[in-house]
């Protein structure tokens, strides 16, 4: 039994390593000192002044916007692509398949400079649009992989059955194919969303004026001496993430119990 306690202690230690820095941030978001050095007094001021920090909020808005658009687009084109590659044989399939692995495998910085170079070469202005295009590019492959993993266990026969029963292609797609691929699509969307939210490196190279994202803003703020407003914003984001994840856990546990 002693080894069981040791194991639990080990699990605790690893989680502590992962969570201590986050915990510190939450605590310091209530710290009246601006310098993030010692804890002085308890205050809510940073949450209030956060509302006036236009540039920080704008970066946050940009980030959400980019994440939303790039998730939506990459889920749509990724799902279509995955289905097509599963269903049809075509000459360039192998090439496309290889291309899809490039953004996953190569170091992010290489994709970042490649995109910067091509935007420069073609004289495309760096803006919210270029940054969104870049995000779609690195999100799509992950969506394809997720959808594909569900597709591999998907039974084509039900589509035929549906069509036999008189459903046209369109109806079959929306009522049969997509619902049964939903788990894969959903996890692809989740992955794409979180990748886009957190991306530093590729955004760093493809951002232009007025398209600052939250990670980039925080990067420059950390270098310049971060204000506790950032801690406050993180605490709020964290709260939302925890709520969403708790829902996810509850569903998952219920599923486990049923299964």
């Amino acid at each position: 039994m002693k080894s069981k306690h040791l194991k639990n202690f080990y699990i605790f230690l690893v989680l502590l390593f992962l969570f201590l820095p986050i915990f510190i941030l939450v605590v310091y978001s209530f710290n009246s000192s601006r310098l993030n050095v010692t804890f002085e007094n308890f205050t809510f001021d940073w949450y209030l002044s956060l509302m006036d920090n236009v540039s920080l909020l704008e970066a946050f808005k940009n980030t959400l916007l980019i994440a939303f658009v790039s998730t939506t687009v990459s889920v749509i084109i990724g799902t279509m692509g995955a289905i097509a590659m599963h269903r049809y044989q075509f000459k360039t399939k192998k090439a496309l398949d290889t291309l899809l692995y490039i953004p996953i495998v190569i170091p992010e910085i290489v994709l970042g400079i490649s995109l910067l170079s091509i935007f420069t070469l073609t004289n495309i202005e760096l803006s919210l649009i270029t940054i969104t295009l870049a995000h779609i590019t690195f999100c799509v492959p992950f969506v394809v992989l997720c959808v594909r993993s569900t597709l591999s266990s998907y039974d084509d026969q039900i589509e035929l059955a549906a069509m036999d029963l008189g459903a046209n292609k369109f109806k079959t797609l929306f009522y049969i194919t997509i619902p049964s691929l939903l788990p894969g699509i959903a996890s692809g969307a989740l992955l794409a969303f979180s990748l886009s939210l957190d991306d530093v490196i590729i955004s760093y190279f493809t951002a232009g004026p007025g398209s600052n994202t939250l990670p980039l803003k925080i990067f420059s703020m950390i270098k310049m001496g971060i204000t506790p407003e950032v801690n406050a914003l993180t605490t709020i984001i964290l709260l939302f993430t925890i709520i969403a994840l708790s829902l996810f856990i509850i569903i998952q546990i219920k599923k486990n119990k049923k299964g």
Binding site: L15, L25, S194, V200, I218, I222, T241
Partner: peptide, 24 residues
Amino acid sequence: TILITLVILPFLTNSLIRIHGLII
């Protein structure tokens, strides 16, 4: 399920922010 979600949670918060916490 709970433990693995706890591992994913920091992964979903901004990595720069977490590094800032690490610096403190």
